[in-house]
Design a protein around this nucleic acid. Structure first.
Lengths: 186, 186
DNA sequence: GAAATCGTTTACCATTTGGTAAAAAGCGAT
DNA sequence: ATCGCTTTTTACCAAATGGTAAACGATTTC
């Protein structure tokens, strides 16, 4: 729970009463490996903080292949920037996960009692989007080997915790290509 | 100038007095084709609205090649989400451009007189980031031909207004590959 | 422990893309 | 129209990646 406090305080000041109020709106959720947090087509009217574990955001491309679009790890928020629209992607636990879940309604209502809430949360969303964008950008212009090395640097240990087939689709290559690249590096 | 009003009103209500105040902070700027709006290493402490023309955001990759990261077209804002840091990228006019430029200071101070300013501008930034992310994502998993076709759909006419070498680097391929792809499509 | 299942690697070849270089096409200035 | 310059296309071959299939290894299930 403390991780949430630490995270929030990066984006603004909250006194202990305000922190307690925020915490009172959280619902703990444990997900077993491979369980779905949100399935495609559902409305995602929650905001979740990842206390522990790895999740992935996925979709099926036009060839019917399952693509891992992002990995999400602990001390990050999980929300839907496409407000009000049903999810085109699904979110799945890659390892056992512990989350703190807010109902979107509760999350938004916090701005009524915490003046800085809106500004804090918009900073959080912006930072998350910028980070995703940076990650995504590096996947376009570099060759597959460089992309894999960058992945190893940005997500240390992740490669030992997730199936390589997920990593391959995240990097935009086949599993066989990734295997070949790994062989050539070592 | 009317384009700015129309754009802003998508994100919240402003009365005519507030609109006049916003407009009073703008400085018109014309850029000739190939002129730089911001060069790498500079501080980008402005916010600009594109009235007319096309710009591109660029950088040099680790091989020293010039990469076009985004194209920006009219009725869009142009700002630096990495607040306060010097630009690692540069912004160049691809065609003759007309901009409305705000000093960042003026832009931020508008929140003192317009209550909804912060919430409007954070919506604008978020929408822009989400759009960039969508564009960028489609460039990773699809093959080069599909990427080019998607580019044609998302940016109609753009291909007739910008050098193909820019388009190629945006798509993450060489100019020769793009030429080959164009030949095969027609 | 054997069988079944899943994840990963390897091999083979087809396809795509990159790199170098040259030719062709477009364009502005004179 | 011609020249000079830039942009785009083409050609050739090398390198990287994809697709299919099989083998291998680890884990689970009975």
């Amino acid at each position: 729970m403390n991780e949430l406090e630490t995270f929030l305080l990066q984006f603004g000041n909250l006194n202990s009463k305000q922190l307690d109020l925020v915490k009172s709106k959280t619902n703990p959720l444990e997900l077993k490996k491979d369980a779905y947090f949100i399935e495609a087509g559902q409305l995602f009217d929650q905001v979740a903080f990842i206390l522990h574990g790895i999740l992935r955001i996925c979709y099926y491309n036009n060839k019917g292949e399952e693509i891992t679009k992002y990995f999400l790890h602990e001390n990050r928020f999980l929300a839907n920037p496409y407000k009000g629209e049903p999810m085109t992607e699904y979110i799945q636990a890659v390892t056992d996960c512990k989350l703190l879940v807010f109902h979107k309604k509760d999350w938004n209502e916090l701005s009524q009692t915490i003046d800085s809430w809106d500004s804090m949360t918009s900073k959080i969303v912006q930072q998350a989007l910028v980070e995703k964008l940076d990650r995504r950008s590096s996947l376009v212009t570099e060759d597959a080997t460089t992309r894999y090395i960058t992945f190893l640097e940005k997500f240390p240990n992740m490669v030992n915790q997730v199936p390589l087939s997920y990593v391959a689709s995240y990097l935009g290559i086949t599993q066989q290509s990734l295997s070949r690249i790994r062989k050539n590096i070592h």
